[in-house]
Simulated scan of single mutants.
Amino acid sequence: MKDDRFRKECYHGERSRRHHQSVRPVLPARDFATSKRFYADLGFQVRMLTDRLAEPRYGAYSFLLQDYYVEQWANNCVVHVLVSDVDRWWNQIRGLDVASRYEIKATAPRLENWGKVAGITDPSGVLWLIIEPILHSDLEANRDS
């Protein structure tokens, strides 16, 4: 019983607001300097935490970038970024010409059944999906038009 009460308070109550400050993924960097520059070019503020660990921050959101690389890990890592206007993000990415400057893949926005999605890989192969979620009621309205 005590464990259930603690779990409920920890995940749903006041205690969760006091004890949880953030959840941040740790991403690999094949070339640490290039990866830091890439994220800075995208608008992240990159703060060094140690000589092999950085915190790229975009507003209230951040992740950890480490000077460590395993190809299978990087190629299977996906970050979802939910935005209100994917076209605005895409225009920024395209305007920065990061795809050719960093020799990475960038995919223009396309409509999927779960949202409007653009994609970009970082220089290490981590896939970032930039998603403008759509409601199923919006899809139905577009089909009826």
Rank of each mutant, 00 (worst) to 15 (best):
F63T: 06
A54R: 13
C77T: 12
Q92G: 04
L65C: 07
L64H: 07
I93Q: 12
Y39F: 15
Q66G: 10
N91D: 15
R110I: 00
S35C: 15
W128N: 12
I120W: 05
K105S: 09
A106G: 01
A33S: 06
D51T: 15
D3Y: 09
E9W: 02
G95W: 04
L53M: 06
D3F: 10
D4L: 04
R15H: 12
Q66T: 03
L53H: 03
A141E: 12
Q45K: 00
Y61G: 14
I130V: 15
Q92T: 14
P109W: 13
D144P: 02
A99G: 00
L65G: 05
A29E: 10
F6T: 02
W128T: 14
G43S: 04
F32S: 05
C10N: 09
P28W: 01
S35I: 10
G13Q: 04
R88H: 11
I93G: 06
S35N: 13
E9L: 02
S62C: 14
V117L: 15
F38R: 04
R101P: 00
F63N: 06
L127Y: 13
S22I: 09
G43R: 02
Q92V: 10
E55I: 01
R110G: 10
A54Q: 15
S124W: 04
L135W: 13
W128L: 15
I130T: 07
N76H: 12
Q66P: 00
R15M: 14
G59W: 11
D67W: 02
F38M: 02
N75I: 10
G95V: 10
L49S: 01
L82V: 05
T34L: 01
Y39T: 07
H80S: 01
S84T: 11
G13R: 05
T121V: 06
V98D: 01
T34W: 00
I130S: 05
Y39D: 08
